[in-house]
Simulated scan of single mutants.
Amino acid sequence: MKTFTPKPADLTHDWYIVDASGVVLGRLAAQVADLLRGKNKPTYAPYADSGNNVIVINASKMVLTGNKSDKVLYTHSGRPGGLRRDSYGQLMEHNPERIIMTAVKGMLPKNKLAKVQLTRLRVFAGEEHPHTSQQPIEYKIHQVAQQAK
């Protein structure tokens, strides 16, 4: 039996839309990372870019479990004194997109391909998004947070 190697003609980039309302951050990030890598396709190969475009809506309605609202997310500008620290509680109010982008980035492999795959992720705090013309397929995450039930 020969190993299947996807050809460039086999690689398609489908569009998916994920509703984050009531979903735990880690579960959401894991599902989105799998979609970005293309692991839902039979033509998946870890070295080929067969990933999808993913739109995440309602990022402000996702759920943080435990004491994550006190957890701090650090970034550095690269300049002296450029360390910035924001708690997840503050980011949920002002910039929930950054929380999801950071969580998904942590679940992607640490290589050049991950940077390309992360550019296909679009996160929106509300319900509206400008990508309706791409006709995204709705991807349902079945297990929602215990708090949301």
Rank of each mutant, 00 (worst) to 15 (best):
A20Y: 03
I57Q: 02
L73V: 12
L108M: 12
N52D: 10
Q134L: 03
D86Q: 13
A125E: 09
V104S: 03
R37I: 02
K112E: 12
L108G: 02
V24F: 04
A103Q: 11
G78A: 06
H131Y: 15
F124T: 01
T12K: 14
L28P: 01
V144A: 09
T3S: 14
G82H: 13
H129S: 09
R120W: 05
Q90R: 05
H76S: 13
G38W: 06
H94A: 10
E128I: 01
H94G: 00
H13F: 02
R37H: 05
Q90E: 12
A59I: 07
N111P: 07
Q147T: 15
R85N: 08
K115N: 10
A125G: 05
G22P: 00
I141C: 08
G89Q: 14
G22D: 11
A114F: 05
Y44H: 07
I55H: 03
P109W: 09
A148Q: 11
P46V: 04
H131A: 04
A125D: 02
E97W: 08
K71F: 09
N111F: 08
P96R: 06
Y74L: 08
Q90C: 00
K39P: 05
K71C: 04
P96Q: 06
N52K: 04
R37M: 14
A33R: 05
L118Y: 00
A20G: 05
T3D: 13
W15A: 06
H13Q: 11
T12M: 03
V54M: 07
R37L: 15
L35S: 03
P80W: 11
Y47N: 11
L64G: 07
S87A: 01
G38E: 06
A125C: 01
I99Q: 00
L25N: 09
G89K: 14
V144T: 15
A9C: 07
G126C: 02
L113T: 09
P96D: 07
E127C: 00
H94E: 13
K68D: 08
K115F: 10
P42Y: 07
